[in-house]
Design a protein around this nucleic acid. Structure first.
Length: 303
DNA sequence: ACGCCTACCTGCTTGC
DNA sequence: TGCAAGCAGGTAGGCG
């Protein structure tokens, strides 16, 4: 499941390999992959002849900046992948959108489960502040026009230097939600998904059911460091591969083997040796060490 | 603000 | 072996 480190890996690969390439043609094989307001045929027509500029990332979306300022957003969701295929590569039955590059290569959007979405937007607004409530209502009434509007409701990027422990503390204040739920909430913090939420909480020794506003200043600092550390480690290892995730080279990442709790139920905790537990929070499986990540309040509630 | 539900999808695993 | 049910979970939207 692509989260921030996986999406960052794909974006960096594409930055190296397709920047400067011209899109000769676009083949849309699953129309619903194309997000409004572009009907698939118009999407293809508008991209024909465009040149790829910088490739970056915001939240869990790959941003393909075009030389003319427009931006293609690719939300990989569960099983999406962007793969650069050299000429002669056998076709892929799961390729939902194929960007034919002028040099003969293909940039394939592959997605087994068809959850992912690709949009085409005007540039601008990415660095702007969030709209106030009135303008936000207007922005929601129709599909956003600018790429910035697409991400207007997303929370901060956890790896930016502006995401400090103080900023995290501020955002946690007054929130009664559970830590796990908040970490998965993209409007609270962008880019963290189920894998890295569990990893960060284990690393910070915080129970996933802990109320967000109950953290001491020391615990907030631990959480802040843990979030950044697990994301950085994920990027360093080219992402964690479960199911369908691969980089733009089509190769799986190395980080799955280096995870501490995710999908390790029953296996020994790497810190204390006791078995890792699993529970369901908000319909998501959650992996944690009941010994290292003790929540006094959860214990009390269980009695 | 928050929690809970459903829909979107397909392939893999599990149980009979 | 076959077949159906269950499961995986990111995100949007709806409801209470």
């Amino acid at each position: 499941m692509p989260e921030l480190p996986e999406v960052e890996t794909v974006a960096r690969d594409l930055q190296r390999w397709v920047t400067g390439s011209t899109i000769a043609d676009v083949e849309v094989r699953w129309e619903r992959t194309i997000r409004h307001p572009q009907p698939a045929a118009r999407f293809a027509a508008e991209l024909r002849g465009a040149t790829v500029g910088r490739v970056g990332r915001r939240a869990k979306s790959v941003l393909i900046h075009l030389a003319d300022g427009r931006v293609v957003t690719v939300a990989l969701r569960m099983t999406g992948a962007l793969i650069v295929a050299p000429p002669g590569t056998p076709d892929d039955r799961y390729a939902r959108v194929v960007f034919h590059l002028a040099d003969g290569r293909q940039l394939r959007y592959r997605d087994v489960r068809k959850f992912g979405r690709i949009g085409l937007w005007e540039g601008g607004g990415l660095l702007a502040r969030r709209p106030r409530s009135a303008s936000r209502r207007v922005a929601e009434a129709r599909e956003p026009a600018r790429v910035g509007d697409v991400f207007a409701r997303h929370g901060p990027e956890p790896l930016r230097s502006s995401f400090t422990a103080a900023r995290l503390a501020e955002r946690l204040q007054g929130r009664s939600a559970r830590l796990k739920t908040l970490l998965l909430d993209q409007s609270f913090i962008a880019g963290v998904g189920n894998i890295y939420a569990d990893e960060a909480l284990w690393r910070a020794r915080l129970h996933p059911l802990r109320r967000a506003d109950s953290l001491t200043p020391g615990e907030v600092r631990r959480l802040h460091r843990a979030i950044r550390a697990v994301l950085r480690q994920g990027i360093a290892n080219r992402g964690a591969s479960f199911a369908d995730y691969v980089g733009a080279d089509g190769e799986p990442g190395e980080n799955a083997e280096r995870l501490s709790v995710y999908q390790r139920s029953g296996e020994p905790c790497l810190r204390c040796g006791r078995p890792i537990s699993r529970l369901v929070i908000g319909q998501r499986s959650t992996h944690y060490c009941p010994h290292c990540q003790v929540d006094p309040l959860a214990e009390q509630a269980a009695r």
